[in-house]
Amino acid sequence: MTRDYRAVDGAESTLGQSPGQVPILELRDVHKVYKVGEVKVHALRGLSVRIMPGDFVAVMGPSGSGKSTFLNIAGLLDVPTRGKVFLLGRDVSRLNEVARARIRNRVIGFVFQQFNLIPRLTIYENIEMPLIPRGLPRRERKKLVLKALREAEGDTSWLPKKPLQLSGGQQQRVAIARAIVGRPRLILADEPTGALDRATAARIAALFIRLNREEKLTIVVVTHDPELAHCARKILMIRDGRIVGAEAPQPQRCIAYSRR
């Protein structure tokens, strides 16, 4: 395993980017302490990272290393105990709930391990959901939904169906369509292949690669799955609430290329 310590020290990630560009996401010395009853749990201990526009970063680490906490704080679902979070160069670590919700809605798209589609809504309604708080007119919403579904390599015949009528891989495509429907700058994915078989995981990995290359989406994937991590442009290792190393991925180990 070759480690790129230079990138760790400055928490720089400048793959293919010109220096001086504003990072999409930056965490500076972020600490997160949870209180579980009387016990204080340090989930993050001074984590710093920079994600530049166009990046595709995989964050790997064992269970309890702070992966999920990192993703929650990066996605403005949680606030740091200490440290700062910058999104598009703006300090967002102390914003109120409404402002954070608006930023989540416009700048970030989430993809989850369990897809988290709303079972009673149709596929169309699920993908449309992030557009509701924006108050867009119906026709515009429809255009965006169809575009997102196409980009996520979904099929329009799914639209009137309910999530449970689709396979896991199809559901994850729908979830990805929902994540990108609002044209966000940043996709945050939490174990997106964790609930899928290998062949399906390969297709989802290929989809992420394509969205990153063709749609210029910045993607951060938290995963256990090395075959997914090697599809990224960069792998960051997290341990004990800190980034402890970076790795150049080996494309031949990427599931999208090895299993197609």
Binding site: L77, R104, I118, P133
Partner: peptide
């Protein structure tokens, strides 16, 4: 589901 709604940008008020 409410967590998902919040993640995709619904405010508490909504």
């Amino acid at each position: 589901e409410i967590g998902v709604l919040k993640a995709i940008g619904f405010t508490d008020a909504e």
